[in-house]
Computed example of a mutant assay.
Amino acid sequence: MKNVIYLFLLMCCSISFCQNQKLRTTALNTKELENNTYIGFDGLGNNYYIINNVFSKQNENQIWEYKNVALGRITSVDYVNPLKIVLFYGDFNSIIILDNQLNEIQKLNLFDIDNTILASKIGMASQNKLWIYNALKQQIMLFDYLKNTSKIIGNPIQENIKYTQSDFNNFYWIDEINNWYSIDIFGKVSLLANIPPFEKIQIIDNKKLLFLKDKSLYCLNNILKTVYEIEIVEKSFQNFYYKDQILAIFTNQQIKFFKLKLP
């Protein structure tokens, strides 16, 4: 019975998306880059970079930096809460939590806390918790970083994961056959859609995502079942980031900002 229900949901979510509309952008400004890896920006006017494995936060007036050579390469950065920034060092299964001035406020070595946790994905959740995808058990967990306790939510994920992203209340993942799922903090799993092939992707919420394919950028609206091509003059860029109706596209040399309203 469960398999029948799953197949029905998959068929519903795999309906072909229409692709006959375009979204226009308005060019805003350009920033130069010098051997930096640009990560993105927050709603407070700060830009985030990794420069020679040093995490950097910059605005028009100030630059802050954090480095921890002992933990190796920075695997990922989560700044969904700009006041508590999460750095993940995968080589040492370690998490660093920073304040808004990049002062270290907490250091967690997951092997020291629980040697059954091998994190491959990390994100900030609500109520002093972190999202963790435990690669050893293929399970999603909520980890309380003040109490050093964890709670497994949902069943083990059977498919290989291509991409993950999270916000305070949801953990999203896309599997190897491009099924897009979410799980909330209470353990409710939703199959949102089967999405088109992509090279780069950013999930905006449970209704929309942006993806890069063949040097073109698209917006998928899961509710309207429509894929919109985003009109930008720049055709050679490595990645992008979107927040608060601002789209940034970037290469190794430049970041270009555009105004973009998503449907």
Score class of each variant (00 low, 15 high):
residue 2 K to E: 00
residue 4 V to Q: 12
residue 6 Y to G: 00
residue 12 C to G: 12
residue 14 S to T: 09
residue 16 S to P: 14
residue 17 F to M: 06
residue 18 C to S: 11
residue 25 T to Y: 07
residue 29 N to S: 13
residue 29 N to F: 11
residue 29 N to M: 12
residue 34 E to M: 04
residue 34 E to H: 07
residue 38 Y to T: 02
residue 40 G to Y: 11
residue 42 D to E: 03
residue 43 G to D: 10
residue 46 N to E: 03
residue 47 N to K: 14
residue 52 N to A: 05
residue 56 S to L: 05
residue 57 K to Q: 12
residue 65 E to C: 08
residue 69 V to Q: 15
residue 70 A to R: 15
residue 72 G to F: 00
residue 75 T to P: 01
residue 77 V to N: 04
residue 78 D to S: 08
residue 78 D to K: 13
residue 80 V to D: 15
residue 80 V to H: 11
residue 86 V to M: 10
residue 89 Y to T: 01
residue 91 D to A: 14
residue 93 N to P: 05
residue 94 S to T: 13
residue 97 I to D: 08
residue 98 L to G: 06
residue 98 L to C: 07
residue 101 Q to H: 15
residue 105 I to D: 03
residue 105 I to R: 14
residue 106 Q to I: 10
residue 108 L to Q: 14
residue 110 L to D: 07
residue 111 F to W: 10
residue 114 D to V: 11
residue 117 I to M: 08
residue 118 L to D: 12
residue 118 L to I: 01
residue 119 A to T: 01
residue 128 N to T: 06
residue 129 K to Y: 01
residue 129 K to T: 09
residue 129 K to H: 10
residue 131 W to K: 02
residue 132 I to H: 10
residue 132 I to W: 05
residue 137 K to M: 10
residue 137 K to Y: 03
residue 138 Q to C: 05
residue 140 I to A: 01
residue 142 L to A: 05
residue 142 L to F: 06
residue 143 F to K: 05
residue 145 Y to I: 06
residue 146 L to P: 02
residue 153 I to Q: 08
residue 157 I to R: 09
residue 160 N to R: 07
residue 161 I to L: 03
residue 162 K to A: 06
residue 165 Q to V: 00
residue 167 D to H: 04
residue 173 W to S: 01
residue 175 D to K: 14
residue 175 D to C: 11
residue 176 E to C: 08
residue 176 E to A: 13
residue 184 D to V: 03
residue 184 D to R: 14
residue 186 F to S: 13
residue 190 S to Y: 07
residue 194 N to M: 11
residue 200 K to S: 00
residue 201 I to M: 06
residue 202 Q to D: 10
residue 203 I to N: 13
residue 212 L to S: 04
residue 215 K to H: 02
residue 218 Y to F: 15
residue 218 Y to V: 02
residue 221 N to V: 02
residue 221 N to M: 11
residue 222 N to L: 15
residue 222 N to G: 14
residue 223 I to E: 14
residue 225 K to Y: 06
residue 227 V to F: 11
residue 231 E to Y: 12
residue 233 V to N: 14
residue 239 N to H: 08
residue 240 F to R: 06
residue 241 Y to I: 05
residue 241 Y to N: 04
residue 241 Y to T: 06
residue 243 K to L: 13
residue 245 Q to G: 03
residue 248 A to Q: 01
residue 251 T to K: 14
residue 252 N to E: 11
residue 257 F to W: 05
residue 257 F to L: 03
residue 260 L to R: 12
residue 262 L to C: 07
residue 263 P to Y: 03
residue 263 P to W: 07
